[in-house]
Design a binder for these strands. Structure first.
Lengths: 238, 238
DNA sequence: CCAAAAGTGTTATGGCTACACCCATGC
DNA sequence: GCATGGGTGTAGCCATAACACTTTTGG
């Protein structure tokens, strides 16, 4: 492959009048704040160290490499900027307004879920976790993007089983219910929730129990035969 | 704005090692075939006149201009290649597999609906309407893309009111039901369909009736106050 | 024993489905 | 009149919601 340096789409030369393709990801997890009872939706942001919006917080991402697919680019840029590899990753939307950046950038945005234990806090430089409900002013149009991702998350939790992407392998029904309650921001009836999820066939009961408080709760595993979400005819393409 | 000709992303020079951004659209309409009872889902394809897959049928589209948003590019390329302007247009997915084209192309794909009366057949050169259920082998990964768009169409018709995008301003309940039946490929109970759609509050009854066969059927209009589909916090952005 | 969460049972409600039935028009 | 689609009524079914109730642990 020949590559002329001046044509490298990853160069930050603003005088070059081309459209560049970036890939960003909105990663959600649940965080239990010290004083709070219910966990909250949180996401990691990266402090920008370069000119457009330098110093402001932005979604993790990077330029699309000429020799990699979109999904691969999302995974790679995510790992490079935050060190995270999500349990669930799905394309969200392509943002391409002319004025969303000083230079012309089309961003293919992904959204992802990560288990709380995988969200290694206080590790990588320039990365910080924020409460999704109270974000600062982000770089570019990233506030809008997060808002849209949150909408998709709340929507999708209603008709698919993505909530499992926020839990460890084994979990109690109360923990699963807590995930739904945090995302939907309303209480669910424990009795009805149990029956719904039991009848869905997505859970496998184990012989183990979570002890420590009151009556022990049975631990469940996720039934891998049932997909997290119906993505239609799109498989692991890209 | 300065533009170096060799950097023009719209040039078809395959030796230039950059990622170019294209915009394509899957446009659906309903066509009543001569001998058939029920209308069928149909879409227009464009015969390729250039090298990659020359002579094969492909989705209408074109290169993204540096100074236009994604939605605008979809509308423009659609009008340029087919002369159509849809009643409903929504982003579908960004396709960016490395091997989907000889040169690296990321395609932002839209899907659209058009009313049968607007689908001016036999007009534009190199454009032909195909039955969505029996397509030939298309250029690039366009067969997969159409399959995904059909999946989205069938999904979305279940929880939104996009079916109106395939009808004229005034229509009978039987005509609206026929749209649903064609997309979902199954019969719906006329009585239950009537009640469902009446209770949804999306229809405004008029004083006019469709005559010509048997008992006249009341004509309805679409209630503009209710959106065709909930797109979440994304408005008319781009 | 008591508090609290785990887990079960029961009833009401509302939407959907199936289908019987009446209405109005063309022929 | 009669065939046909327009339009209404109704009973069964099933998922959900609300909530009373029992069970099992920690303290």
């Amino acid at each position: 492959m020949t590559r002329t340096s001046t044509l490298d789409p990853r160069s930050a030369d603003a005088s070059v009048d081309v459209t560049r393709v970036a890939v960003s990801t909105v990663i959600f997890t649940l965080r239990r704040l010290p004083g709070a009872d219910a966990p909250r939706v949180a996401l990691p942001l990266v402090r920008r160290t370069r000119d457009p919006h330098e110093g402001q917080w932005a979604l993790p991402g990077g330029w699309l490499d000429v020799a990699e697919g979109l999904d691969a680019a999302a995974s790679r840029t995510l790992a490079e900027t935050t060190g995270l590899s999500p349990s669930y990753l799905e394309q969200l939307y392509a943002f391409g307004a002319v004025d969303r950046s000083p230079t012309r950038v089309v961003s293919i945005v992904y959204w992802a879920l990560i288990r709380p234990d995988e969200a290694s806090d206080d590790s990588v430089e320039n990365v910080q976790w924020f409460d999704a409900a109270s974000l600062p002013a982000l770089a570019f149009d990233h506030n809008d993007i997060v808002e849209y991702a949150l909408w998709r998350l709340r929507n999708k939790v209603g008709y698919s089983r993505i909530a499992h992407g926020l839990l460890a392998d084994e979990f109690t029904l109360a923990e699963l219910r807590e995930v739904y309650e945090s995302i939907l921001d309303r209480r669910l009836d424990p009795a009805n929730f149990r029956r719904q999820v039991e009848n869905s066939g997505t859970l496998i009961p184990t012989d183990r129990f979570r002890t420590g408080s009151h009556r022990p709760a049975r631990l469940y595993r996720y039934n891998q035969d049932v997909e997290l979400a119906d993505r239609g005819p799109l498989g692991v393409r890209q």
